[in-house]
Amino acid sequence: MSQPTAAQPEGKKARPIVPFLRLGDNGDKPHLVAKRCGNCGAVYLGRRVACSKCSATGPFNEIRLSDKGSLWVYSIVYQSAPGIPTPYVAAIVDLPEGASVRCTLIDVEPNPEKLPFGMPVEMVTKKVREDKDGNDVIAFFFRPAK
């Protein structure tokens, strides 16, 4: 887990919005991690009891996912739950390790003409809110690769 930064009050931490986001310790960059089935190679985000592709119960090896991938498909959401700003690009991004990630695409016009299939994208992180204890909640997003 990441350490408190100077900008935060004492005792407050930055915490990832999901367990498969690592914020990066010791100067490392934030990145996603996955579990890879040692039997068939299927890749999963999050915890695993067994492999839903081949049913093997392990071993599952944690792998670091690339922060660059490509846009598989998307939708542009104009009507959402109350309090959620719209529009946003709800995307499915494929990563080279075989993982598929549900994410929001940012820094791009919400317009199908600006969202070519296969577009190279890269991951960024930012604070999205504070939790009830005052910790920063950090989420990952993807944006067109620079």
Binding site: V18, Y74, S75, I76, V77, S80, I84, C103, T104, A139
Partner: peptide
């Protein structure tokens, strides 16, 4: 909620995709 932050779990978006 992670809606809008980690993509969308809303039915219109899922079936849109």
């Amino acid at each position: 909620s992670v809606e809008g932050i980690l993509g969308s779990g809303l039915m219109p978006a899922v079936f849109g995709q």
